[in-house]
């Protein structure tokens, strides 16, 4: 068994794939350097990310299965999960080593694993499209803190840019400590190190004096609406919780006043 240790970047993962062909090794366990614990029997190889190598792998991969399907591998990468990294590694190798159409051989373990991981990361992406709640700040910017299970900001930037084209907004991932800022023209990546009150674990809401005058009323109206559109005779909390798991409640305006 060979252990490849990469730096945890997508470029590093693709470089690892390049090097398995370069060194003609097959049976490879992939580790990222944060999580790697040297074992006794492993033959360890440290992978240094190399743009030229990773570009070659990515180009060949896109050429083989098309941009859209190749993109799924990147989506899975955003799960930040060690097991998922291994699946991406195995999947890309399997596609390279097999004939046309192998990416839809759902009888193959790495194909079905990539499919399932892609579904879970996409589900989280979709949830963020649904659960993000903006609060309008006094300076007019709409602000939303989030704590997604996976690193989905890169997957939702375009969606929010198109939808909220005429308002400035910030979406901030308090877990990963970076965010997106849209200035009516472009979306840029930002990081706060000053605003303590929006750090994970503390109060997720902005204090009143930072908010626009109308923000509180809209929050209350949304709560009124949420309560009145419910039909008590049909109460089904199990279903409610399945669709809106408790870990998301912290940032949901409709759960704020309940």
């Amino acid at each position: 068994m060979n252990a490849f240790v990469f730096d945890g970047t997508f470029e590093g993962l693709l470089t690892s794939i390049f090097e398995t062909y370069e060194f003609k090794v097959k049976d490879v366990r992939l580790f990222d350097n944060l999580r790697y614990q040297p074992g006794l029997i492993d033959e360890t190889h440290e992978v240094i990310s190399d743009k030229a190598k990773s570009d070659r792998v990515w180009k060949a991969f896109v050429k083989k299965i098309g941009k859209q399907k190749a993109q799924n591998a990147y989506t899975v990468f955003l799960s930040e999960d060690a097991e998922a990294f291994q699946h991406i590694f195995d999947f890309i190798r399997y596609v390279f080593d097999s004939g046309e159409g192998a990416e839809s051989n759902f009888g193959n373990p790495s194909v079905i694993a990539i499919h399932k991981w892609e579904r879970s990361v996409s589900r989280e992406r979709h949830r963020m499209k649904a659960f993000i709640r903006f609060e309008q700040m006094a300076d007019g910017i709409y602000y939303a803190p989030i704590e997604p299970d996976f690193n989905v900001l890169p997957l939702i930037a375009g969606f929010f840019k198109n939808r909220y084209a005429d308002q400035q907004w910030i979406i901030y991932d308090t877990k990963r400590k970076y965010g997106l800022f849209y200035d009516l023209e472009n979306v840029t990546e930002i990081a706060f190190d000053f605003a303590e009150n929006i750090e994970s674990g503390t109060t997720p809401y902005l204090s009143k004096n930072l908010l626009d005058d109308k923000q509180e009323l809209y929050g209350l109206l949304w709560n009124d609406y949420f309560r009145n559109t419910n039909i008590p005779a049909r109460k089904n909390m199990k279903l409610h919780l399945r669709h809106v798991p408790k870990r998301y409640w912290k940032y949901l305006t409709e759960k704020k006043h309940n």
Partner: peptide, 12 residues
């Protein structure tokens, strides 16, 4: 997109 669900489990 279903932005939230009421306590009766219906999409909002």
């Amino acid at each position: 997109i279903c932005h939230t669900y009421t306590e009766d489990g219906r999409c909002v």
